[in-house]
Simulated scan of single mutants.
Amino acid sequence: MDIETLLRGHPDWLAHLESGGPATIAFPDDLADELVRLAVPHEDIGAVLATLPEPGGPLWWLAERCVGSLVSAMGGLDPPPAFPDLPELGPYFFVHVFVAALPYTRRYHREHGVPDEVSRATLADLGRNMAAHRKRHGTGGLHHPRWFMRHARGILYELGRLQFERVRMGVRTGEGVRAAGLPAGPGDLALSVHIPDFKGPMTPAACDASFERAREFFPSCFPAERFLIATCHSWLLDDQLAGHLPASSNIVAFQRRFHLLHRCDTGAALEFVFGAEAAAEWPRRTRLERAIADHLAAGGEWYGRAGWLRL
């Protein structure tokens, strides 16, 4: 594989990597144990170890600069260019990058007083997203490497059932909040709520506990920032779900927390609910699977939806 030729196909990203320079990286002697701590699926650990980049080689050069990109934007709300999906680098290259960045991420956590249990839970999302990749594609790898950049840069934290990301509101969401009479709008700080996979039911009690932890965590660890609003952009906020699920469902209860705004992406429900399973084989094992599949079979379409709530 010719790394130089590959990167020339992404000139803006290459220019960013070259301008920022490398970070010093090393892999721990107990890397297998580290991968277990990160919840990396057991079937992937051997392959992650076997494909480590060699010091001085082209993948090492690239890994140093990817980690340098993360470090250069550590804690900042303005992200660096997203890591592109580059299967030519192998399924585990960005896993190596995020593992190499751990010392920098953990130092940032310590500097901001992030409790150890929150740091561990947050970083274990690496393994969860490797499991998500296998669920969606049937092979080993990391699902959307750009997603874990948030964790590695110290802007996203897992607090119980939910994750919270330090963001600035976009135009449409911010205008919706301002129109409701709140003293916040586009560009103002907010916490973006994410619902991780593989964590069991999102019960009202579990979500209540997560929001309460967020109200305590962020003023403690980021006292210079004031978060008045939480936002969410998710297929779980598609109000069509309320027409297919009982009023007592956890998803409907979650939707009721938010003031719903505009529709956004389409198709995410299929990816999250069915993974790699083909349309002809959509299972109907749960009420949610039946709702998604039956709505599509009737010619309907599912959407993402934006929403907000006051913290």
Results as ranks from 00 to 15, higher is better:
Leu6His: 03
Arg8Leu: 14
Gly9Glu: 14
Gly9Asp: 14
Asp12Ser: 07
Trp13Glu: 12
Leu14Gln: 10
His16Gly: 02
Leu17Asn: 11
Glu18Pro: 02
Ser19Val: 08
Ser19Trp: 09
Ala26Gln: 11
Ala26Ile: 02
Pro28Glu: 13
Pro28Met: 06
Leu31Asn: 03
Glu34Asn: 01
Leu35Met: 12
Val36Gln: 10
Ala39Ile: 03
His42Arg: 00
His42Ala: 15
Asp44Arg: 00
Gly46Asp: 15
Ala50Thr: 12
Leu52His: 07
Leu52Phe: 08
Pro53Ile: 04
Gly57Leu: 06
Pro58Glu: 15
Ala63Pro: 04
Ala63Trp: 04
Cys66Met: 12
Gly68Leu: 12
Leu70Glu: 15
Ala73His: 13
Asp78Pro: 00
Pro81Phe: 07
Pro81Glu: 12
Phe83Asn: 08
Leu86Gly: 05
Glu88Phe: 02
Phe93Leu: 03
Phe93Asn: 05
Val95Thr: 15
Val95Met: 05
Val97Gln: 04
Val99His: 04
Leu102Gly: 05
Arg106Gln: 15
His109Pro: 01
His109Arg: 01
His109Asp: 15
His109Lys: 00
Arg110Leu: 14
Pro115Asn: 06
Ser119Cys: 12
Arg120Trp: 10
Thr122Asn: 03
Leu126Asp: 13
Met130Thr: 04
Ala131Asn: 06
Ala132Cys: 06
His133Val: 09
His133Asp: 15
Gly138Ser: 10
Thr139Tyr: 05
Gly141Ala: 06
Pro145Thr: 07
Trp147Cys: 07
Arg150Asp: 15
Arg150His: 14
Arg150Trp: 13
Leu156Ile: 14
Tyr157Asn: 09
Leu159Lys: 05
Gly160Asn: 10
Arg161Asn: 06
Arg161Leu: 13
Met169Gly: 05
Thr173Met: 11
Gly174Asn: 01
Glu175Gly: 02
Val177Gly: 11
Val177Lys: 01
Ala180Phe: 01
Leu182Val: 12
Ala184Tyr: 04
Pro186Tyr: 02
Asp188Val: 03
Ala190Met: 08
Ser192Ala: 13
His194Asn: 15
Ile195Ser: 10
Asp197Thr: 00
Lys199Cys: 14
Lys199Pro: 00
Ala206Glu: 15
Ala209Trp: 03
Phe211Ala: 10
Glu212Gln: 09
Glu216Pro: 01
Phe218Asp: 13
Phe218His: 07
Pro219Gly: 11
Phe222Ala: 10
Phe227Asn: 10
Ala230Ser: 14
Cys232Ser: 14
Cys232Gly: 07
Ser234Pro: 08
Asp238Arg: 05
Gln240Val: 04
Gln240Ala: 12
Gln240Cys: 03
Ala242Leu: 06
Gly243Thr: 03
Leu245Met: 05
Pro246Trp: 01
Asn250Ile: 02
Ile251Thr: 13
Ile251Val: 11
Val252Tyr: 02
Phe254Tyr: 12
Arg256Glu: 15
Phe258Val: 05
His262Cys: 07
Asp265Cys: 02
Ala269Glu: 14
Glu271Arg: 00
Glu271Cys: 00
Glu271Asp: 09
Gly275Asn: 08
Glu277Pro: 00
Ala278Met: 09
Ala280Trp: 03
Ala280Cys: 07
Glu281Ser: 08
Pro283Ser: 12
Arg284His: 07
Arg285Thr: 12
Arg285Leu: 14
Thr286Met: 05
Ala291Ile: 11
Ile292Ser: 01
Ala293Met: 09
His295Phe: 08
Leu296Gln: 13
Ala298Glu: 15
Trp302Ala: 10
Trp302Asp: 08
Tyr303Arg: 03
Arg305Pro: 02
Gly307Arg: 05
Gly307Met: 09
Trp308Val: 07
Leu309Arg: 08
